[in-house]
Amino acid sequence: MNEASHKLEAAIKVLIIDALQLEDIQPEDIDTDAPLFGEGLGLDSIDALELGVALKKHFGLTLASNDPAIKEHFRSVGSLAQLIANQRANQA
């Protein structure tokens, strides 16, 4: 775990709390590898859409709705950080 990916994960946690209005949750309450949807935080499909919009806006993430791997990308903070890092590496 390098410092850059750790920072990215922390930023994603803050974004999740802000964008999804999770009033009672702190960034440290979100486990990097825990599922975001269904179990874990208990987020729903509207949260998934809202998070997609927020990630696009803040990290310039490109998402294709027909990408078969999208569910896996949105599984956890860790998988989202990986996706953003991969896209950044490809653009670099």
Partner: peptide, 10 residues
């Protein structure tokens, strides 16, 4: 020209 909030839409 930004995406409207899906939560607000719902």
């Amino acid at each position: 020209e930004t995406s409207p909030s899906p939560a607000a839409f719902s």
